[in-house]
Amino acid sequence: MDKSNYTDKELLAMLRNPEQRNYAFNLLVRQYQERLYWHIRKIVISHDDADDLVQNTFLKALENFDTFREEAQLYTWLYRIATNEALTLLRKRRNRFFIPMVDVENQLSKTLESDEYFDGNEMQRKLQRAILKLPEKQRIVFNMRYFDEMKYEEISSILGTSVGALKASYHHAAEKIEKYLKND
């Protein structure tokens, strides 16, 4: 199946047509699954969690296509759902046992250490540990800019934060990470 055949506009038109919806949904999943999965995975670290969340993301999108406003780009909207799903999971874990924020991040670090689906070298592991020490939103900004190489304008439309604030956030994140990598 050639993923690049359809534009977002065409996909949306097919999704709104009940007869083509299933086919269009399948195309949508194939077109965006990897991007969304990796975005989520970098937030939650665990493959199993990322797997659940990416599925939830697409199911939520399917339920809510009727409310999707076409002023936003389709992938921006999907990214937003994916980000919210990941953050909701972390918050639920934080609140379930009244664990303070720092412990959830420690849990993620432990997951990183024992993750069978981590294939990086020691320096990459150290980088991931450094990223986990950042505040939640800063971590997401850093991942989107550094790993996904997204433009600030794209990140801004996904997170609803101004470009200026994002640049500052990324700059601070990079500083903290570099300091950690030098000192650790």
């Binding site: 699954q33 493959h47 697409f58 199911l59 689906y117 981590f118 990086g120 790993f147």
Partner: peptide, 23 residues
Amino acid sequence: KKNPFVTPGSYFDRLPSIIQDKS
């Protein structure tokens, strides 16, 4: 910048049908 995370084998080949079944 290289992504250090990996997935189980053929994960992205299977994911669309898993999601389709769930939908």
